[in-house]
Simulated scan of single mutants.
Amino acid sequence: MQHVLTLIAPAGQLQAPLAARVRAALIALGADAASPEWLAEEEALDIPFARLAPEQADAAARAALEGLPVDCVAQPAEGRRKRLLIADMDSTIVTSETLDELAAYAGLKERVAEITRRSMNGEIDFSAALRERVAMLKGLSLSALEATWEQTHLMPGAAELVGTMRAHGAHCALASGGFTWFTGRVAEKAGFTSHHANILEDDGASLTGTVAEPIFDRDAKLATLKRLCAELGLPLSASIAVGDGANDLAMLDAAGLGVAFRAKPVVAAAARVRVDHADLRALLFAQGYRAGEIVS
């Protein structure tokens, strides 16, 4: 079949009758849709199809699901396994916004988090917002970085996503609007091949309230994706990108498969693929990995 529609749900929440309903919806639009093939029992399955555009299949599936907590990924069947993963960090690979959590140690979490929210939803300029938030932390002891790291946790499925893709020969890169102080630690913990982010400046005892220029922003994320593909000898179509904020949109749009993960409204509305319900293993199922292939 030319295309494949993947349905993914939190474990135990995907049932065969629901898959049959989605397949019937595709057929009703004139698609040639094969029987569902389970990738993970009651969690993820493929429906190969032809004679229907992926966008039409996605819309038909969502209508048939009637708001149930199931994610859909419709795409060409050929080349679905990617050789490069490029991922945002905050609220994507880790569960928190590390800058917001760091600001808590200065008593500024709510003020900083509101600026973060507006920046990630594309309401204000990312670089200006980052400089403003970092300036508010001038004089904060470096011990706050360690305390923040101790409370930073990987997103469910993150280690499996990275471990599985690396086991199959992929390069896995973090590309974050946050800071290398955190991305280096997250990369080591989750198994990323490389990490790319902003440099938070200090005087050896406390933060100076400045970030090194140039800012690693939306354009830098896109440039990193393109550079890594060139260095690895890969077409952009062989990459998968994931993120949740407005500064991720350019790389999501350029990647072979761009996934908005539990994303901000402006990102969810613009992205071709979004994952709202499942964990990060959804990106493996979208590439056709079966449960038995996932590295835990």
Rank of each mutant, 00 (worst) to 15 (best):
Q2S: 13
P10G: 00
Q13P: 03
A16E: 15
A19H: 06
R21C: 13
V22G: 07
R23N: 06
A24I: 13
L26Q: 03
A31F: 03
A31M: 09
A31I: 08
P36E: 06
W38G: 02
A40H: 00
E43K: 13
E43N: 08
L45T: 01
D46S: 09
F49M: 08
A53F: 07
D58Y: 10
A64M: 14
A74K: 04
P76N: 02
G79R: 06
K82W: 07
M89I: 13
T92S: 06
V94P: 00
E97I: 05
E101K: 09
E101S: 02
A103H: 01
A104Y: 04
A104T: 01
A106Q: 06
A113P: 04
E114M: 10
I115H: 06
I115K: 10
R118W: 14
S119F: 09
F126E: 02
S127K: 08
L137I: 08
L137T: 01
T148Q: 02
E150W: 05
H153W: 13
H153Q: 14
A159W: 02
M165L: 15
A167D: 14
G169M: 14
H171Q: 12
A173K: 05
S176G: 05
G178V: 03
W181M: 11
G184Q: 08
A190P: 01
T193I: 13
N198Q: 01
T210M: 06
A212R: 03
I215T: 00
A223V: 03
A223W: 01
A230Y: 08
G233T: 10
L234R: 02
L234V: 07
P235H: 09
L236N: 10
S237H: 12
D244Q: 08
A246Y: 10
V259F: 14
A260E: 07
A260W: 09
R262G: 13
A263G: 09
K264H: 06
K264L: 14
V266S: 09
V267G: 02
A269C: 07
A270Q: 14
A270P: 03
R274M: 12
V275I: 15
H277I: 13
A278T: 06
D279H: 04
Q287N: 07
Q287R: 04
G292S: 12
